[in-house]
Design a protein around this nucleic acid. Structure first.
Length: 424
DNA sequence: CCTCCACCGGAAAGCCGGGTCA
DNA sequence: TGACCCGGCTTTCCGGTGGAGG
């Protein structure tokens, strides 16, 4: 026991030491969380119109009437979720003061993605007792109704990313939208949030019309609006005079170029500051923003590579080997022959050249490689391919694939002999 | 000016896993 | 349960082609 405690103490000392050091490095962040997209700001700049619209549709709830169902559209980072949570909170606060029972229940359909889970989640919030799995769905539905109807109240169910849910069938939406006729004391209305504008086409017409009695569209932010948002958050996130001139403008401009995504703008600012912090700078500069752009891009590419099908990964690996052996540009034929031998070594089926040609085009579309079709006259027409990624990190991501682990074995052999000999 | 390389890329059919319906 | 369908992936087949070299 004594020994154990001593051991703990030593560890504590070490930890203290590390944290002390981390704490004493001049931090530029006052509150880092403000820049995360989970943060709920006190004010939502440039969303007055939408707030107003939402509020006016939801007021009936305060009079004990059923508000219309709402469908909310908008691309990612246009403030849909934040706005709705904001209005929802206000609604609950006011209703509490007015002594009216009114609840907003928020669900993210990417996480809660089946009819069963949605119904169970609603039921349980209102005091029902539905197990995670096991019940027949209609029993869950009954339980949910019973739970809600226990009191005279208005329940607003927010279904974030409904499109994810609809892909697995619109039965839930159908059930939820007609639940009111079976409730005696309470009322339910639905707010669906979607970033897919076409998603209504996948709905049963009846569901579609009852779900979207009202529609609110969230347009993308422009550069100026993004700047206001960043400015507001930066004041909360950083100590005074930490952010150089032009940093916020640059972040806003860059994010505005791509669909006006506030989430991206905030990420950019946060990553810039993190880079500055790591470099132990006292200020965040435009230079840091540029580095952040590169870092975010690289991280994105790596994520894309990770989710590539195995065949594309091994193909890409072949290209990496070619590049490493000093050939910056290569043709479809060259890649194909390396790809073939790699497949044989790993024991994967070999696809046809026609198919590989398509996979190469896909990699091109994803921005992982650059390829153009050129003619070498007498020597035929082909694609000229060039890698466009950080090689080392991509390589390690590819090797994470359990079917490709054994590729690392060959690397050394390949390195010692010349690549071309190796693949004879 | 013609040839002919080494592929490109369209069309269509086959294969396969999953889902649906009687 | 089996017949059937669907959509994604892949193969087969094949016509098309820019330009170096003759």
């Amino acid at each position: 026991m004594v020994k154990f405690l001593k051991h703990r103490e030593v560890i504590n000392l070490i930890l203290m030491n590390i944290f002390n050091r981390l704490l004493t490095t001049t931090s530029i962040f006052k509150n880092r969380d403000v820049l995360r997209h989970t943060y709920m700001p006190e004010q939502l700049p440039h969303r007055d119109e939408q707030i107003e619209a939402l509020a006016s549709i939801l007021v009936p709830a305060l009079r004990g009437e059923t508000p219309s169902n709402i469908l909310v559209y908008g691309k990612t980072g246009t403030g849909k979720t934040a706005t709705i949570k904001f209005v929802g909170k206000q609604l609950e606060e006011v209703s509490a003061k007015m002594n009216v029972k009114c609840h907003v229940h928020y669900l993210n359909c990417e996480v809660i993605d089946t009819q069963y889970r949605v119904l169970a989640s609603i039921a349980n919030v209102f005091g029902g007792n539905v197990p995670m799995t096991g019940w027949p769905t209609d029993q869950v539905y009954e339980e949910m109704k019973k739970a809600i109807d226990r009191e005279d109240r208005t329940v607003i169910v927010v279904l974030d990313e409904v499109d994810k849910l609809v892909k697995k069938g619109d039965e839930v939406l159908y059930n939820l939208s007609r639940v009111n006729s079976e409730l005696k004391r309470s009322r339910v209305s639905i707010i669906g949030i979607s970033n897919d504008l076409k998603f209504r086409n996948f709905l049963d017409p009846r569901v579609s019309s009852s779900l979207s009695e009202e529609e609110i569209v969230f347009p993308p932010y422009n550069a100026e609006q993004l700047r206001d948002i960043l400015q507001q958050r930066a004041e909360l996130a950083f100590y005074d005079d930490v952010v150089d001139d032009g940093v916020i403008d640059l972040c806003a401009a860059l994010a505005a170029q791509e669909h006006g995504d506030a989430r991206k703008a905030l990420d950019l600012l946060r990553v810039s500051a993190e880079i500055a912090e790591k470099e132990r700078c006292k200020k965040v500069t435009v230079d840091h923003v540029n580095k952040a752009v590169k870092k975010i891009e690289a991280d994105h590419v790596i994520e894309v590579v990770r989710t590539l099908p195995t065949q594309s990964k091994i193909l890409l690996f072949g290209m990496i080997l070619l590049t490493e052996s000093g050939t910056a540009k290569f043709t479809t034929g060259e890649v194909y022959s390396i790809y073939k031998s790699l497949c044989k070594k790993v024991g994967l089926s070999v696809l046809t050249q026609r198919r590989i040609s398509d996979l190469i085009s896909e990699l091109d579309m994803l921005g992982i490689i650059n390829s153009i079709v050129i003619s070498k006259g007498r020597y035929g027409r082909t694609r000229e391919i060039k890698l466009d990624v950080p090689i080392n990190s991509v390589k390690s991501v590819i090797l994470e694939d359990y079917r490709l682990k054994s590729l690392s074995k060959f690397e050394k052999q390949i390195k010692s002999s010349s690549t071309l000999n190796f693949f004879e």
